[in-house]
Design a protein around this nucleic acid. Structure first.
Lengths: 234, 234
DNA sequence: CCTTAATTGTGTATATTTGACACATTAAAA
DNA sequence: TTTTAATGTGTCAAATATACACAATTAAGG
């Protein structure tokens, strides 16, 4: 193993792939750059890691600056390290994806950064390797959402089954059978009825549900038990 | 977004979590350090990213130096960026895990680096955050192996069904029903019989199989179609 | 040479889960 | 009050998973 290097520098950036859901479509929060380099083009929101800053903390900081959200759902996706990915200087970038409820952010902060919600299907080309980052993040979101009900991060606190179904349909770009979807979700017991009905609906008003935090924890533990001896390792 | 930083440096390292399989147990290739820092302690094999080097290429280089293997199965796991994870200097480390057939390496290269195969259940404590890296890599290996037959990377070119079953049992630390396992694996058609029998067996000699590369590709394509519109994004 | 022990190969019955679809209910608007 | 567009609940067949029985192969020991 080599000793610690004496010269040269490689910058470390963090870029955020921010997913939102408006009830119909999966959207991305993108910024139209009003700064160099690549002024005027679309990109993800990003920044450089500070010398005395945790990687995760940097992602939280960047997301907070853009949206005003303090406790985002945030997961590291992948680190992108091609030599010429940033033409200005050698930079590797750690991608984080976030799921946020689309009406939660601070609109002033968004405007400050020239940020907009763009439907995934309408996504413009992004600078550098940001298109690839979105691809990888979407793939990871899909894998993860297939196993864990993280999709709830994209919905308001209470929601109807049809709303939840539309979210899954948007994530996977498929159409699901309403009745089978309902049966499967309710069988997990992670939802509890609020007893109220969705006032916004124009026809029959659906039941509003919320996530039952305890049952949700049980559900996740059930998954861990598929990997029974993970603890034995430590 | 901030401008490119003018001062300070953050080093970028790559560490490799190398899994192997001896027919019974899942093993890790670890090195007993004969260099500073942390001389005499156990660690993963790692190194620093060079200024003009792809991230993935750095992982390949490090693995080649240790094992003499040219085309390893290698996947990025996660990037570890706690401030004090390396006490000498601020360093973030990109973890890659590798699956290699346990008899493929160059023994001289291993000896040079003071490296040994250690059963996962016997793993000593490692330096820095390397224990955590192993945890995360194992979790990722398990997720991935549940969906894709990457386990073959850990076996010789030809193998019997019982050997393959033992591999899965070692990865998940479970016991599986021999007959159901056999039926499930063979139904994928990704294995083809070599027509030969395992000479090493002491009782009934099992049929030797090899991976059918074409069928394996078809099988992977089938998975991609579960994410039907992924292409629409680009 | 014949039995025993250990392991591999193949089959089958049952339970569980999934997928496709029918029908009743609710609410607003015409 | 009829129509329209949703939501809520049920049923049946097909596919899949699970549990377990039994036959075949090989080496070793009497």
């Amino acid at each position: 193993m080599a000793n610690y290097p004496h010269s040269g520098r490689i910058l470390v950036a963090v870029d955020c792939i921010i997913f939102g859901f408006d009830g119909e479509c999966l959207k991305l929060l993108l910024i139209k750059r009003n700064f160099e380099p690549e002024l005027g083009k679309w990109s993800l929101m990003g920044g450089f890691l500070n010398e005395k800053e945790d990687l995760h903390a940097a992602a939280v900081r960047i997301l907070f600056n853009l949206t005003g959200i303090h406790n985002p759902y945030l997961e590291q996706v992948h680190t992108f390290g091609q030599i010429d990915r940033d033409p200005v200087e050698r930079t590797i970038s750690v991608g984080y994806y976030s799921l946020i409820s689309i009406h939660d952010q601070d609109p002033a902060a968004l405007a400050n950064h020239n940020a907009s919600w763009i439907e995934l299907s309408q996504k413009p080309s992004l600078i550098f390797d940001h298109d690839q980052m979105v691809e990888v993040a979407l793939r990871q979101l899909r894998y993860k959402a297939a196993m864990f009900p993280i999709g709830f991060e994209l919905l308001p606190n209470t929601f109807t089954l049809p709303q939840l179904q539309k979210l899954y349909e948007a994530i996977y770009n498929v159409s699901l059978d309403r009745r089978n979807f309902s049966r499967k979700i309710l069988s997990t017991q992670i939802l509890e009825s609020t007893g109220e009905k969705d006032a916004a609906s124009v026809t029959k008003k659906g039941t509003l549900y919320r996530l039952n935090a305890d049952k949700y924890q049980d559900y996740l533990k059930g998954f861990n038990s598929f990997l029974p001896e993970f603890a034995e390792l430590t």
